[in-house]
Structures are given as C-alpha cells and as structure tokens.
Design a protein around this nucleic acid. Structure first.
Lengths: 336, 336
DNA sequence: AGCCGGGATGTCAGCGTTGTCTCGACGTGT
DNA sequence: ACACGTCGAGACAACGCTGACATCCCGGCT
C-alpha cells in the first residue's frame, strides 16, 4: 500500500498514458501541452505524490542549482545571523535558497568547506573571509561563479564586497567625544579580525589627530590574546598613570565588557561602542550602529547583480554607520 | 587559456590516460587503485581544477544527498538561530550540510517551502511547525524521510520531536514566587505560538492551584492581538482592581516589555521571564532558562538516529529548563 | 605446464531530467 | 484536391557519475 520508492516522470507518464517528455513539459512550463493532457498529468502526479527531482534537472541543464552558499566563521555570533537573515530574505525573492556553512573560525578549514560547497555546485559563494588568502577561488571566479566578500574584503582575489564604513563610523564617535572636551580617549578591542579592527583604529587615530592628539598608543588596548578579556583591558587602562576620560570599543563584546567595568566603578567615564546590541537603549549605551540585515541584503543584491552580469566590474558596497547617542557617550570629561 | 567549462571525470581521465571509472575510484575511496595511477589521476585533476559533482553522484546513487533542511518561521528571531547553530554543529560532525529555509511565519507557505526542499532531495527535514497541520508530510515519512519537529510537536503527524519542559519550567518559576509569599501573580505573554503558550500557562495555573489559588483568569494577559504590546498588558494589569504582586512572562519579548514598564514604575513587583536573554544578568532579571543550542543539537541527534534506523519508534526529547535567580524574581510581596 | 585467485582496470548501462529532432494530425488558402 | 504551416506529442540522447560485470595480468600452486 505504501509506495516504496519515489515517483519519477516515467511513473507519472505511465499512469497518465503519455510520454515522460510530456510530463516534463507540464512541469517545465513554456512548451505547449493541451489542457486535457495537462490535467491528466497533474492528477496522475498528485496521485503518485510526484516531486520533480531538482538534482536531475540541474545535472541535465549544465549543473546550475538555485542554491547560494554563505560561509561564516562561527554560527553563534549574532552578528552573522542578522547578516544571514538579510541574505536569505533577498535571495528568497529570486527563488534562491541559502545554505549556511561554517568554518568554526579556523582559517584552514575555509578552503575545505568551500570545496565541498563547490562540489555541490552552488550558484554563488558569499563568504566572510577568515583565511588570509582567498586566491584559491580565482579558478571558480573565472568559471563564472560569483564570489562576494562580506564584512571585509577578500585577500588576493578580485571580488565584489560589502563592508561597513568602519573608519568614518569610529571617527564620528571619537569626534563626538572630542567635541565635548575629551582628549584622553581609550580604544579597547577584543581579539578580533584584522581588517575591521585596523579600519576602526585608523578612524580613532584620525579623529584624535584632528584635535592635535597624536600619541595615542598608550590608550590603545587591542590585545589579540584571547585570554585577556576586555574587562581586564579596561581595568588596566583606568588604573594606568594617564587614565582616559572616555573609552571607545572596537566591537560589541568589548562594549559589554567595558560596560560592566564602568558600571561597577561608578559612572564618570564616557563610553561609545561599535556595533549596536539589544537592550543598549535600556542601558543607555551610545553606539556606532548600522543596519546589520542590510549588510546581508546588499551582499545578496551584489550576488544577483553578478549572476546577471558575470563579466561586469566588481564593486564594493559600503554600508553607512550612524552614531546613536543614549547617554554613555555624552558624559563630559571631569574638568571642563 | 582559461577553461571555459568545468572539468569532469572524463576530462581528468583523458589527461591521466585512464578510464573515467578509475578516476571515479580514486575519489570514491574504497576500491583498489595502484599508487602510480592514483598519483597520475590526482595530478591531472589538480591541473584541471577538477571538483567532483555531488549532484551527479547523488543522482546515480539513489538520489540521496547530504543536505538536511531546517525550516523556520522568521530568520530574525535569535532563538531560531541558536537552534540552527546547534543543528549545524551536530550535523557537520557527520558530514551533513544544513540548509536554512524560512516561511516568513506564514502557515500557508510552510508546505510550499517544504515542497521545494523535497524537490532538492534533502536527506531529512527539521522544522518548527507553524501551520496547524503537518499531515501533508505523511507521504514523505513513509518514503523514509526523517521528519523532526522542533520546539513544538507536529500536528496530525507521527514525528520525532524536541520540546522544552515548558510546563514544569513555568511551574517552577511560579512556585518560587509562591514560596516567598506571592499569591496574586500575573501571566503576560506576547502574541505567540499556541503550543508553548498553552504549556506554560498550564504550568502557571498548576503551581498556583497548589497553593489554593484557582481563579487566575483576571491575572492572565495573553492577547494574541499583535497590536497589544506586552507593555500595555502589564500596565493594564498593574492598574486593575486587583493588581498582582508578581509577574511571569511567556516569552522573552514579553519579558523585555514587562521589564521596561516595571523599571519606569519603580521596583516592588517581582518578575520572572521565560527564555533567557543577553545581559539579563546585568539587568538582574530572573528567568527560566534552557540551553538553546542544545535544543538544536538534540534535534540533530534525533535526525541522525532516524537516519540510522528509519523504522524505529519515534521519540520525543524534552529539554530541561532551570530557574536562574538574579534578583527580580526574589522580590517579596509588599505585606509579608 | 596448466590452473586458479585476486588485484588493477575497463565497458556499459542507467540514475531522472530536458534539449533536439521528428512525426502525425489538423486547419487554411488557393 | 493539394501544399503548407502549426501544434501537440513522442523517441532518443546526454548531463556526470557509479554499480555491476567483464577483462587482463601475474604470481603461486599442483
């Protein structure tokens, strides 16, 4: 009574009394099939619970699937999944499916994971680069596979990319602090990815240089040693000979860490974080915010663009940031 | 100079001077190939940038892919993502890939989305059911497709499931409140899914009945009207004739809402939320917590189990909850 | 010398689908 | 009555791969 095996075009054709090609035509759309035949086919298909086999279809039609891969480092990071959400949304509108793959933040596994995806003949590749060389993708690119780099540019590979306006976002934050009189401003970052850190740090230095502060090294705490937490970094800053009157952080984990320390110490040090986070409004934390989902959407749009025009010039899309003032960033320095 | 089309087994075979079957054997693993030949094949493959075509392989070998689908309502919900993370982790260890699909919380699109996934011949189907009838999956189940229901049981379908211990989790929370003297306890929930809401509400009522409180209706605010926010619900509760001295919430959005209202009113009403959330520790909010990733991991393990033993009895895994006391839930009633 | 076993390789067909080509039937215009 | 175009439908091959089976060669045994 139960079908042991899945129905194929042939099965449907046999039941409907037509050839398999006719069934194919019914599903394929375009070609001409008489209404009577179409009906017969559809009812047979329904009876057999027929589902066209996308695999076979893809194989026949030049190996093109409707699947796009998004490669991320660590799926637990909420940042990544907001981006993924944006991608998924935008792709779904074009009937593309997103498949998510992770490298567990291990640079070595990046190319392994990507290889597996290519073996699955994904239609395009979106990735947050973590290895320091993406040149292994050059061949794919030449074969027409769109490669889109997200959150940071690819290394040694010409590829479309979507990045944040890291530098000016951070500069804006620091300027808002110097505007109210701060000069000694700390920069704290958790171990984090080189590119974004570098850009944000540059923005920080630029903004301070504008008000004549050039020797910022003593206020920079960017330990890439994962054993040193942002909390410790902030404590060491505040206990130094020349403690800052304000702190900016390089990412949201650092912001939370800094927040905890500043809270327990009482609140006269200003704080502005990079990356918005839930409940930041409630906690009164000023941040450099941006539309995380839009980062994904933009990446997806770039993908579609590249699919439509494989030989076009590669583009880099920059997502703007904005300073959200909620209190913590508007605390003036002690002696004004 | 650039290969215009992707290399196939044939191409590699020709270059290596062997038959395509031999190349297949090199990649397939098991069979015996002399070291010399293997070398020749591998170097030819490398030269041609050959990547085996998983699609073709799957097609040939009975249409089985290594892809598992996870169907969720709204990808922006962080809850889903933690679950997805758990699934991905657990599946990756077995070489399975997770593909994420969303229904945009529209019950009607559930079966459409699932259909598309089946057309892709996914190996198993994990879903957070949102339509009120999953019987359309019965055929697939009979064809041996594992169907795992996550966070709530499937409707009208025998399927493995992973759920939270909603009822006793909530009961524990309420008991902790009655233990310190609360009797008038409000239950506030945002519009949310029926099953979990029902279970949690039942736990709430049970715990109150244990201390002789049976008429709880006046303290229940479970508007499924999305236009009524949790904030409003809490306000209306507090302004009623018989205001509660403590509030429990049915999900994390409701918790945040309640928290905001209680904060602005000053803090003599106790609050325990269902679902943990980031920074809850910092805000001192007591919650019923559970391991979100574990929910996903358990679902994935169930999937693997069902793949290994397609005819075994279906199981329901219950993820335990635990009460995390952080202050807001330990506020005693005014007149103790 | 003749036979057997087994390792290394090849041949062939077919997985489910669709592109290409072909064929028959029917309608139209002269 | 005949040529011609159009439309619906089928036959066949092929997409890239692997399972089943065949073949070949060589060492070891009687």
């Amino acid at each position: 009574m139960t079908t042991q095996t899945r129905a194929t075009l042939e099965d449907v054709a046999r039941l409907a009394g037509v050839s398999s090609k006719t069934v194919s035509r019914v599903y394929g759309g375009a070609a001409s099939v008489s209404p009577t035949t179409r009906e017969a086919v559809l009812s047979a298909a329904k009876r057999l619970r027929f589902r066209p086999n996308t695999l076979a279809r893809s194989l026949r039609s030049g190996g093109v699937t409707n699947t796009v891969a998004f490669v991320i480092g660590d799926i637990r990071n909420p940042f990544y999944f907001h981006v993924a959400a944006g991608i998924e949304r935008e792709l779904a509108e074009r009937g593309l499916t997103m498949i998510l793959a992770t490298t567990d933040d291990s640079p070595d596994s990046e190319s392994v994971v990507v290889d597996a995806l290519i073996a699955q003949r994904v239609r395009a590749l979106l990735l947050i680069p973590i290895s320091d060389d993406q040149s292994y993708l050059e061949g794919e690119r030449q074969l027409g596979m769109p490669v889109i780099s997200v959150d940071r540019p690819a290394r040694d590979l010409v590829a479309d990319a979507v990045v944040l306006d890291n530098r000016s976002g951070m500069a804006e934050a620091v300027r808002s602090l110097t505007a109210i009189g701060h000069r000694r401003i700390g920069f704290v970052s958790n171990p984090s990815e080189m590119y974004t850190l570098h850009e944000r740090l540059t923005g920080y230095r630029e903004a301070l240089r504008e008000v004549g502060v050039t020797d910022t090294a003593r206020w920079e705490r960017l330990d890439n040693d994962p054993s040193i937490t942002a909390e410790e970094a902030v404590r060491s800053l505040l206990e130094s000979d020349d403690p800052p009157t304000a702190i900016v952080t390089g990412n949201n984990r650092a912001t939370t860490g800094a927040m905890r320390v500043l809270r327990e110490r009482g609140g006269d040090v200003a704080l502005i974080g990079f990356d918005d986070f839930e409940l930041a409004d409630m906690l009164g934390i000023s941040v450099v915010a941006y539309d995380t989902m839009e980062l994904g959407r933009a990446a997806a749009r770039l993908t579609l663009e590249r699919l439509d025009d494989p030989t076009g010039f590669t583009r880099q899309v920059v997502i703007p940031t904005r300073l959200v003032q909620r209190g913590s960033g508007e605390i003036p320095p002690p002696a004004a």
